[in-house]
Structure formats: structure tokens, C-alpha cells
Amino acid sequence: MSGEVEAVILVWLNRTQDAPCLEAHLARRPEVVDAWWVAADSDAVVRVRCQDMAALDGLVRGLRHHAGAGRTLTHLVLRPFDPHLTRSTNEPLGSHPVTAHLAAAAAAVR
């Protein structure tokens, strides 16, 4: 797969590593768009934009080998949507402008 990819990565730090190690590593990576410390099962959430899947793979490996991440979970971003556009509960799925192309694509596959 080629082309730019965007991902959200959940990061769990090793017990022996501290926050400054991850922060310093992320500060050196131009692919990092946003990063947050979170009160959740994971320790941090990082949003990245990489030139391709190979670059994303390298970035995730770097988190494990150089930034103190004991575990990561990567979610690829498929496409954005506007959460403020709402669909009426009486509207069938696929009738809203945001989801209409999904119904058309599903029909084309059949």
C-alpha cells in the first residue's frame, strides 16, 4: 500500500520508562501531528501522518525501541466526518449526505 497514511496510536509505557523519554522522542518526529497524555487504559495517544505504510511501521517500531513504549495499538484513519452533522432517527442509513456514498458503494459491489 502506498500513499500518505494517517493513524492514531495508543501507547503504553514500559514500567521502567518515564514520560520525558516519550515526549523527547515525539518532539523529534515530524510525522507527529498531535499527542496527548490520557487518563485511560493507555498512557498516551499520538496522531501521526506518514508518507506511507513503511514510514508508519518505522515510526511505531521507534516508539517501542527508542521511546519506552512497551505496547502500542495503531488505528488507521480512513476518512474524516463531521460529527455535528446528525441523521434523524427516522432517516434510513445511507440517506444522509455523509453516508449516502456508502450505500451507493455497497450497491455497486452487489
Results as ranks from 00 to 15, higher is better:
V48L: 00
S42G: 09
C50P: 04
R49W: 03
R61Y: 05
E4M: 12
V38P: 03
H101C: 14
R87N: 02
D34F: 15
L13S: 07
G94M: 04
V5E: 05
I9F: 01
G58W: 03
A27H: 08
P83G: 02
A105W: 13
A19N: 05
R61T: 05
T74V: 02
P80L: 07
L93R: 09
E31S: 13
L93Y: 11
A103R: 15
A39H: 04
L93D: 03
W12M: 10
E6Y: 01
V32I: 01
A7R: 08
A106N: 06
V109Y: 04
Q17V: 09
R61G: 02
Q51R: 11
E23N: 12
R87I: 14
W12S: 12
G94D: 00
R47V: 13
L56D: 03
R79V: 14
S95V: 00
H84V: 07
A44T: 10
E31K: 02
V77A: 13
L102Y: 12
A35M: 12
V98M: 11
H101D: 15
E4Q: 12
V46N: 00
P20S: 13
H101I: 09
P92N: 11
E4V: 14
N14G: 07
R15H: 06
P20E: 05
V45H: 05
L26W: 01
P20Q: 06
T99I: 09
R87V: 15
S42L: 07
D41Q: 14
V45Y: 05
S88H: 15
H66C: 03
A103W: 06
D57Q: 11
G62F: 00
G68D: 03
M53W: 06
T86Q: 08
P20G: 03
V8I: 12
T86V: 08
S2E: 14
V8T: 10
W37D: 01
T72A: 02
V109W: 10
G58N: 09
R15N: 06
